[in-house]
Computed example of a mutant assay.
Amino acid sequence: MFNFWGDGCNILRIREDELTGVKDWGPSSPVIVTTNRQYIKATEELDRKAGHLAVLAGNSSKLSVAGNVEIRLSDFLKEGNGNNQGADYVFHLNVLMSSQEHMRVLEPFFGIPSFLSYTGNPYRFRHYLLVGKNGSFVNPHSHEAGWNLLIYGKKKWKLNSPLFLSTHECLQEAGELIWIPPHWTHEVVSLEDSFGVALQGIGGGAPPALLASLVAAAIFAITILGCCCIKIKRGIAGKEKPL
């Protein structure tokens, strides 16, 4: 597991009402948006409303981000990992799009903020249901632009810009939405039992950091190959000298 950082926050925080009327919002740096929305307050309420849903769960230490255990949400939420499978987080792909039942259960306490309404397009974005036990974490990874709304609990985030030119970190409280720009590497840990919903874009080009790494690797390979060729030529030339 990674190191977690100081208690400071260098991510801009703004209020949702400051974004009223804004369309296609998507800043180039991470932003936390605070909301006044009324969400469920605890695990017990989530269990009552959505405990019967089938979800995919996983274990942080096994680094299986997508989850590999199918389980009822109610079983996952039992105290002491009562699911007996060691799962400490739920990661359900396209939970809002997967069935009428998922939509019916989740819609009452989750609505896409108006400034992000364009992200409801199922052809451009994927939705996720995220439930993490205290201490669960996700190691560094990156993807297209997305956002993560915390409905209850508390999380700590660390984000690095493409090519790692800048680092941002902050505590996310319940009712706050964090915006993740395209290809920003990010890692997160749950500081208490938490529940959120998230969305990320589909497709797009390769991350700049990956492209830079490939270019650097190609330059390195060409340099090594060139040095080897020079040495071989010198060796051949030395052997051809008359006695």
Rank of each mutant, 00 (worst) to 15 (best):
G146D: 12
G135I: 01
R72N: 10
K233Q: 09
Y39L: 12
K62L: 11
G67D: 05
S74W: 02
I202Q: 06
L165S: 07
A87I: 02
L93F: 07
D7L: 13
L150S: 09
L73Y: 00
N84M: 06
G8E: 15
G204T: 08
N68G: 11
G51T: 00
I151S: 06
L130I: 15
L165P: 00
R104W: 02
V105A: 13
G80F: 05
G175V: 08
G58V: 07
N36A: 08
L214A: 06
V131W: 06
L225Y: 14
D7M: 09
S114E: 14
N121H: 00
L73F: 04
M103L: 15
K158N: 06
W147A: 04
I222T: 10
I232W: 12
C227S: 15
E79W: 01
R234L: 14
G67L: 09
H92R: 12
L130F: 11
N134V: 04
T34D: 11
I230C: 12
A237C: 04
G6N: 07
C227T: 10
S29V: 15
L96D: 04
F110Q: 02
Q85E: 12
S166Q: 10
E144H: 13
A218Q: 10
P122M: 01
P27N: 00
G86Q: 03
N36L: 01
G196A: 09
S74A: 13
A216M: 07
L116G: 03
A50M: 15
L243D: 14
S29A: 14
W184A: 03
K49W: 05
E18G: 10
H183D: 14
G196Q: 06
N160S: 13
A66V: 14
V33T: 03
G146K: 01
P242A: 05
W184G: 04
S194W: 04
G135H: 05
G204F: 03
N148H: 09
L199N: 12
W5C: 08
L159G: 04
H168G: 02
F195R: 02
V69K: 14
C229D: 13
K23M: 05
N83M: 00
I230D: 12
H52N: 12
G226R: 14
C229H: 09
I230P: 09
G203F: 03
M97S: 10
Y123N: 13
L165D: 07
E107L: 11
V69D: 08
V105D: 14
L214G: 02
G120H: 02
L129S: 05
F137I: 06
A145E: 15
V188H: 06
F4Y: 09
A57E: 01
L130W: 05
F110N: 03
T119Y: 01
L243K: 12
E107D: 11
R15M: 10
N139K: 06
R48W: 00
G153A: 03
G201H: 00
F125C: 01
G196D: 11
P181E: 06
S142R: 04
S136L: 00
I11V: 13
T43D: 14
Y39I: 02
L243C: 12
S161A: 13
L150Q: 02
G175E: 11
Q200M: 11
G175R: 04
K62A: 09
I224V: 14
R234H: 11
F110Y: 05
S60L: 07
R48A: 10
A145R: 08
P113F: 01
Q172E: 04
E45A: 14
A198R: 07
E107N: 12
W179V: 04
S99F: 08
Y118D: 15
